[in-house]
Nucleic acid binder design. Structure first.
Length: 276
DNA sequence: CTTAACGCCTGAAGGC
DNA sequence: TGCCTTCAGGCGTTAA
């Protein structure tokens, strides 16, 4: 579920709540979510460690413990982190709580995930994080220019939507925001990336930044699962122009009908009349 | 090298 | 009401 704005919202929430907290106990109810560690490994890795910082790169959440030790989490489709006051370490009352970090002050961080696609990896040093190597330039990076974006598009045969969704090229965008930003830029998602000209690349970049920043201000988009760290919903869903608007008349040209197509097994929503 | 298809897992929603 | 199918915001692996 979560894309850049949702992950950023979670990271900000975590920063406000768990920096400086000392981890006592880790309870793992779903082992498969630990990619490179056993529950015992994670417990000894975290024991008595303080969380010194939380950062985002792409859609990843990077927890930094003392002396560069790091945990990298990904929420995938339905994951969320919920911070609770109280030592809730049983999964009995909520069967979707998969991993619990219990702090020394008896507050807890719950990793909740219905579909259990979410992941956690541990690293002894943050210099060695594999995911960072494979993650392309951040969609909100200051040094991302229209020119750079066009360089990326130029050597790709695929359609512009799949290129924007490729985390190894540009990181942070998912299905919702790609649909929305291509609509805002009036670019046809089916257009071959290699045919994007510099004006379109600049337009895509400008709208990408505006939409992502607005979405962060509104604490992300809650369609179904996404929640903030305090379990509240975001509100960017109220701003959506095309995503899940199939059949609605286009808010821009008023002539086209928002249409849903499949690209790479995933839904794309766009206006066939004004996205060229 | 590239792109396409599938699998991971669970719940919600729609059709009949 | 119940059964069945389809769909879901992601991504890694395998097949072609």
């Amino acid at each position: 579920m979560p894309e850049l704005p949702e992950v950023e919202t979670v990271v900000r929430g975590l920063k406000g709540n768990i920096i400086g907290k000392k981890i006592n106990t880790v309870k793992v109810f779903k082992e498969r979510m630990l990619v490179n560690a056993s529950p015992g490994d994670l417990q000894s890795f975290c024991y008595n460690e303080k969380i010194t910082d939380v950062k985002r790169f792409g859609k990843y959440i990077h927890f930094i413990l003392t002396s560069k030790k790091s945990m990298v989490a990904h929420l995938r489709m339905t994951g969320k982190f919920v911070y609770v006051d109280g030592s809730k370490i049983n999964s009995d009352d909520d069967k979707f709580v998969r991993i619990v970090f219990l702090f020394s002050d008896s507050t807890s961080l719950l990793f909740h995930d219905v579909r259990t696609f979410g992941t956690i990896k541990i690293y002894q040093e943050y210099d060695t994080i594999d995911e960072k190597q494979k993650t392309g330039i951040d969609a909100l990076a200051d040094d991302l220019t229209g020119q750079k974006l066009m360089e990326i598009f130029k050597r790709k045969k695929a359609n512009v939507k799949s290129v924007l969704l490729n985390q190894q090229l540009i990181s942070g965008l998912g299905n919702i925001y790609v649909c929305e930003l291509l609509f805002a830029a009036a670019v046809d998602p089916q257009k071959a990336a290699s045919l994007i000209n510099i004006n379109e690349a600049e337009l895509i970049l400008k709208n990408m930044r505006e939409i992502l920043k607005t979405a962060i201000k509104l604490n992300g988009t809650t369609i179904s699962d996404f929640r903030m760290v305090d379990d509240k919903t975001g509100s960017f869903q109220e701003m959506l122009k095309v995503y899940q608007k199939e059949g609605v008349s286009c808010p821009r040209c008023k002539k086209g009908i928002i249409t849903r197509i499949k690209q790479n097994q995933r839904s794309t929503f766009y206006c066939p009349n004004c996205q060229m």
